[in-house]
Design a protein around this nucleic acid. Structure first.
Lengths: 139, 139
DNA sequence: CTGAGTGCAAAGGGTTTGCAACGAC
DNA sequence: GTCGTTGCAAACCCTTTGCACTCAG
């Protein structure tokens, strides 16, 4: 993963910095994290990394195809490693729990839209609703 | 629609105010609008309506089931009338164009998740990707 | 040694909140 | 008259930006 980073950065004439390594590592380790959480994680290891660096780096990493983001809440976006299997996020609005599903679950939709020439970005997809636990429990 | 508003407000012991009527009307008329756009629209008719009133009112209207919101961009949410047919939003990340689809297109997904007891909020769903126009045009 | 990358502080969008005045019922 | 609602201003969260300094290559 660090090799990927070095390689892809070099391809773009960009530089490998300790911050970029740490931030990528944080995203991988945290699995699903907001910029803020990434910042906290990185800071727990090395003090003095700046929030703006986190934002700028996440943007770079996303352009390099190393991380991805989705919106799992009405607030900050959530980043995850692009090296994981691609997955669809299913979010319970009541308990906030996030479940990952195999992209196969949305394949029919992808196919249906493909018929119109639309290419779905499956990794970005977040499906909201109410999970079994919350639904059965009533209001 | 105004009747709905009056009725539902009364049911909750809430009050019918001119602002609430104007804001609901704005959402209906604009079809897809951010809080900001709603504010601008309302102000074009009556001066002096406050942004916080718009936010508070949209929240109330959503609780009453009269409006709905989705996230069609990384910025402000988009509100629309809940009285329209429920629809799924398909958004092109490149040209930003938003297309509405019949919920039938996602029925297989809804069914698949229902098997796990998860109830999908179809109206909130936004599917991102690249549309035919942008895809064929190349990078 | 040069320019990409960083930290810092300030500004920016969007949203929320406390509070006094207002007005629907 | 009461209490839900509004306007206003300030605060808030999240993110972006300008700039001087730093350090990867």
């Amino acid at each position: 993963m660090n090799d990927d980073l070095a390689t892809r950065l070099r391809e773009q004439g960009l530089r490998l910095t300790p911050q970029r390594q740490l931030i990528l590592r944080a995203v991988v380790e945290l699995r699903h994290a907001t910029p803020d959480e990434v910042l906290a994680h990185v800071r727990s290891q090395v003090s003095s990394v700046n929030a703006s660096t986190v934002y700028r780096t996440l943007e770079v990493l996303e352009e390099l195809g190393l991380v991805r983001h989705t919106h799992l809440s009405d607030r900050a976006p959530t980043y995850h490693s692009a090296l994981e299997h691609e997955h669809v996020h299913v979010v319970c609005r009541r308990c906030q729990k996030v479940r990952s599903y195999d992209p196969a679950v949305v394949q029919p939709v992808v196919d249906a839209l493909a018929a119109d020439g639309f290419v779905v970005d499956v990794g970005h997809l977040a499906i909201f609703g109410e999970c079994a636990d919350c639904g059965s429990a009533g209001t």
